[in-house]
Amino acid sequence: MKDIINSIDRALDILMLLYYEQNELGVTEISKAIDISKSTVHRTLATLENKGFVQQNPSNGKYWLGIKLYALGTLAGEKMFFKNAIKPYIKELSKKFNEVVNVSILDNSNEGLPKTILILREEPKNKRFKLNPRIGSSSVVYNSAVGKCLLAFSPNTKELLEPYRGSKLNMYTKNTIRSVDELLEHLKVVKREGYSIDDEEAEIGLTCIAAPIMDTRNQDAIAAISLSGLTSKMNDIGLEKIIEEVKETADRISSILS
């Protein structure tokens, strides 16, 4: 057998255990399953959590695979089923309006407010005005349609934002949400309506509409799809029409993934 670094070997054992169990596990459960001490499991999990490879559920103290694993897999796996399955739908939506369509996920693995990670995009080739965030890039969560959508349909929104209640947020435009308290109230509306809008909150002159791609239980968002464009053109087309199409596309994708 080749030389093995025991600490790395243990960390990978834990990640694979979570993968095969397909469920959150506590320190004691992991310790029994892979036959190492609880103190060693705890230290290993703390290291993995610090790097975003696992995440702890604050409501029960158990652990699950972290968003960084998904981000890495997304960048490495160009033939991933998720991406291949949804690409025709975002291509169709982009073509219908001749606008940029993005798919993003929530990243709450780091300190501070969560961010979004862009995992897939479709942009018309003849588009003069280009929006060029790269695949895998992260963005502020509270001033984007996808960010607000992902937060609204997250299973632990309050836990993610509670430490920052009373905090002021950086203003990107005059329309940017000003505080976490205001954001929490806004997210109630997003969840009720089933979509979110970036009303020139990140950049004046740009509007974005997003809707959630739901998990198999239709309870939580695993990603969000958005359509972005110049505010003037979006208004000319009609926001209600765009909202309807974005929501319908998100629902169709959710149904094929369930």
Rank of each mutant, 00 (worst) to 15 (best):
Q55C: 10
S254R: 08
Q22V: 09
E201S: 10
N50P: 09
I177M: 10
S232Q: 13
E162F: 10
M16A: 10
T173S: 13
E240Q: 07
R43N: 14
D35F: 12
S39A: 13
I177H: 04
K62I: 06
E203R: 03
I256T: 01
R217Q: 14
I5V: 15
V27F: 07
A33C: 04
R134E: 12
A152K: 01
L161G: 04
L45P: 15
L227H: 08
F53I: 00
T207D: 02
S37A: 11
L18M: 05
G194P: 06
T40E: 15
E122W: 00
Q55P: 05
E123N: 10
E203K: 05
L15M: 07
D215I: 05
A152L: 03
I213T: 04
Y172M: 09
S258A: 09
K174F: 11
L227S: 11
E122F: 00
P212I: 04
S139P: 04
I36D: 11
S137I: 11
D107R: 04
V101W: 02
L169T: 08
K68L: 00
A71W: 01
G26I: 04
Y195I: 10
Y89E: 01
I30G: 02
S39Y: 14
N143W: 06
R121Y: 12
D3E: 15
S179G: 14
I90M: 01
N108K: 15
E122I: 01
M80V: 08
P212W: 12
E185L: 15
I213H: 04
S154H: 08
P124E: 02
T116N: 02
I8A: 11
I237V: 15
V54F: 06
L118H: 05
W64A: 08
N84K: 01
N110L: 15
L239P: 09
E49A: 14
K87G: 00
D251H: 14
I8C: 07
S94D: 00
E111P: 11
K95T: 01
E245M: 10
A250R: 09
N235G: 10
N102C: 15
E111H: 13
V41N: 05
A46W: 15
E24T: 12
K95G: 00
V101R: 01
S226Y: 12
G66A: 14
E245P: 11
A85L: 03
N132Q: 07
L25W: 02
K87V: 00
K174H: 12
K168I: 13
I4R: 09
M234T: 01
I222E: 06
P155Q: 06
K241A: 13
T157W: 07
L187S: 03
L187D: 04
I119G: 01
L257E: 04
T47Y: 15
G205A: 11
L15V: 06
D13L: 05
D215G: 03
I67M: 06
V41M: 13
G136K: 08
P133A: 09
N132Y: 02
N218M: 12
K188A: 09
T44W: 06
L120H: 03
A33D: 05
K96N: 03
K91E: 02
L65C: 02
A76T: 09
F97A: 05
I209E: 04
A202Y: 05
R252N: 15
G166H: 11
E21R: 14
F153R: 03
R121D: 10
E248Q: 15
V41F: 05
A76Y: 06
S94V: 02
